[in-house]
Structure formats: structure tokens, C-alpha cells
Design a binder for these strands. Structure first.
Lengths: 198, 198
DNA sequence: TGCAAAACCTAACGCCCGTTATGCTGGAAG
DNA sequence: CTTCCAGCATAACGGGCGTTAGGTTTTGCA
């Protein structure tokens, strides 16, 4: 009963190599012939494994999105936590998902806009919903007095995601700091700021 | 004495329209025929005004870079300011330069990697130097006790620039908040954090 | 009014793109 | 030993790309 489950090994390998290529040169500047060469095969042979160039991008983007969603749902289960703690866990989760696959994360971040409709619309809707759930944590924190009343919530959440999403661009996995510690420090910096508290 | 000064009006118009196109679709996905159509002329006619597609990108990136540098030098003239205040002014300056031309800023940010050598190398060197001067402000703040000793300086400066550089992606110039106020709040958020100080 | 210069056009170039159609091959499964 | 099929190759398609060559139109100024 050969299951549909087995997308198997070769397709995944194609996608992984494609992710590296897309990160280096960008989606549009990466040709199927480039990708084939990296795999040691001819361009036409790629179509035994994937339906189109865009399918690769689609898989990369939506698989990452699913991981982000799953991570966030884990955090939101813990309803009794203070907002700042929920936010901290959300940030760490987000960082951990990224650290799991920095290459795919970079593609997710920078290349998703080359998805065509209706995938692009779906993707953007998903992202807005994700961001709004973080915005909710910030608003909760303001409501409970944990966070300043004076902050612009849109600015705050955008700053948060800017910081998070750029991590794959500069983070070196071989560096001293580990993902969880990185997430912890990042959360601390955003929540408490750079300044010494008196 | 026909000066070299006069790059005149039409060339600048071409570049401005190209910037909009590059922001929308990305540099590689934008064709010269797209650009020509936006200007109401034929693609070949563009070459009366510019030498190549890449020249446009080069001008956009390096003109922005010059503006950033000029802004930073203004701040660094004020040597007697405390580090946190220098940092604040640096941030506000950076935001103001961006706000002056959000379209070019977005291109500067997202498309510079499509520059070819040796321009790309020059660009990246310039950017590293710029970032390091902000890093210097942070280190100064740590040395004087204004900022926490515990912060990871690389993380701090990267978070700073992530937040700054993504602004063109979400900032709406028609929104209530003005650039200087935005810069002020962003600086406050990064320096003091979200948290209510007791 | 004349004339140079700026602005634009048509036609075409060689090249690379994503993708399809079709067939070969080597090894696992019965 | 045969069958099957995943994995790959060859050849080719229609089309878009950046750019050039060379000629025409428009414009602004002496």
C-alpha cells in the first residue's frame, strides 16, 4: 500500500539545495539550470521531482509558516502567564524555529513576495494573523500595566518583527551564542532596553 | 562651460520611476521594458539617459549611502554628548534620511546585493563602516555605564539596524506619526525597552 | 528662423529562461 | 528472469531579456 506519505528523499534534497541557491542569489536570479548544476543533473530532470520552480518556493514558504504557527500555538496554550512572559516565550519560539533552518528562514523572509496569486494572498493573510497575535500580547501588556502606555503598538510590533526576521542574515550558527540564549537576550533587549536600570 | 553637474531632469525621472519599479517587483524581476512602459517610451530609448540597468541600481544605492554618511557625520561632530544621546540622534538621523525617500530606501535595503563587483564590495565595506560607528556608540555607552554590561554588542547593533532598515516596508507617510517622532519613539523603545520602569 | 542637441523610435542581436515531450537505464520487487 | 519505475538525459519550444545601431522627431535657444 505505497503511501502518499513518501515525498521521499530526492525531492527534499532538491528543495534544500534550491533554498541555498535562493538565499544566495534570490529567487528570480536563480535559474533552474543553476539549481540542476548544483545537483549534478540536467535542468529538465528537475521536473521528475517538482512541478515548477514556484512549487519549490511555495513549499519553502508555507512549511516555514506552519512551523511558526505551531510554535506560537504552544505559547498561547499557557493562558495564565503575564504578557511579558508570553511575549518572551513567543520570541524565543520564533527564534528557535528560524534557527532550525536558517536558509529556509532567509528565503521565507526575502523571497515570499515572488509567490503568485492566490498563494501570495494566502501567505500575507497568514503573516498578518501571526503578527496580530503578537500585537495582542503587547496590548495585553499595556492593559495590565506591564508595558508603557506611551508606546505605539504598531511601531512596537513592527520593530519586534524586524529584529526577529533579520536574524538569519547575520546569525552565525557556529558562533558562541546559542539560539535559545539569543532569543532570551533579544527578548530582554526589546522588553527592557539597552539602558541600565538606575 | 557646460558642466558635468547637469544630470538634468529626465535622467532623474527615469531613476525615480525605476526605484518604484524595483521596490515593487525587485531589481531582477523588473525589466527595462517594464520601466520604459511606465515612462511611456520604448525600452531602447532608456539608453539615451542611462548606461545600463545596473547603473540605475548603483546610483540609487550609493546616493542613499552618501546621505546616511552625511547624516552620521553631523551627529559625530557633537563629541561631548553622552553615548545614549548620540545614539538617539544617530537613529533619528537615519530615520530622517530614509523618510526623505522611502522608495529609494527600500531599494537600497533589499536590492543592493544585485550590484556586481567591484561595486558590491565597495557598498558592503561602506555599510560595515557605518554600522561599526553605531557599534562604537553602544560600546561607549557600556563603558560609561549608561548601558548594561550584559548586552551582546553585536546582537544589539544588529537588532538596531534590523529595526531601522525595515521601516520603509511598513511606514506609511500619510500616517499620523511623523518621521522625527517615529525616530524618537524607536530610539526610546530600543534604549529603554517596552517595560514600564516601576 | 535655423540649427544643434536632446529625446525617442524601429529593428534586431545573441542569450538565457521555464518547461515539455520522449526515451533510456539501472536496480529493487515479484 | 521479468517487470516496473524512479531518476536521469537529449532536444527542443516559445518567449522575454539587456543592449546596440542607426535613423527620425521634438525642443529650446541664438
Amino acid at each position: 500500500m505505497g503511501e502518499v506519505l513518501s515525498s521521499s528523499s530526492r525531492k527534499e534534497q532538491v528543495i534544500r539545495v534550491a533554498a541555498e541557491l535562493f538565499r544566495e542569489k534570490g529567487y528570480v536570479a536563480s535559474s533552474m539550470r543553476d539549481l540542476a548544476q548544483k545537483l549534478g543533473i540536467e535542468a529538465a530532470s528537475l521536473y521528475s521531482h517538482i512541478k515548477s520552480k514556484e512549487e519549490i518556493l511555495h513549499i519553502l514558504c508555507f512549511d516555514m509558516a506552519a512551523d511558526f504557527m505551531a510554535s506560537l500555538e504552544e505559547v498561547e496554550k499557557q493562558q495564565d502567564l503575564p504578557a511579558s512572559e508570553k511575549l518572551r516565550k513567543g520570541i524565543i519560539g520564533h527564534i528557535q524555529v528560524m534557527a532550525q533552518d536558517l536558509t529556509a528562514s532567509a528565503v521565507f523572509m526575502n523571497e515570499h513576495r515572488h509567490l503568485s496569486q492566490p498563494s501570495l494572498r494566502d501567505f500575507l493573510l497568514m503573516r498578518i494573523r501571526y503578527i496580530n497575535r503578537f500585537k495582542g500580547m503587547i496590548e495585553e501588556g499595556v492593559a495590565t500595566g506591564e508595558f508603557k502606555k506611551s508606546i505605539d503598538k504598531k511601531l512596537a510590533v513592527m520593530t519586534l518583527f524586524s529584529s526577529l526576521n533579520w536574524m538569519p542574515m547575520w546569525y552565525d550558527p557556529k558562533a558562541a551564542i546559542e539560539p535559545v540564549e539569543l532569543g532570551f537576550q533579544l527578548a530582554d533587549m526589546l522588553i527592557n532596553g539597552l539602558k541600565q536600570n538606575k
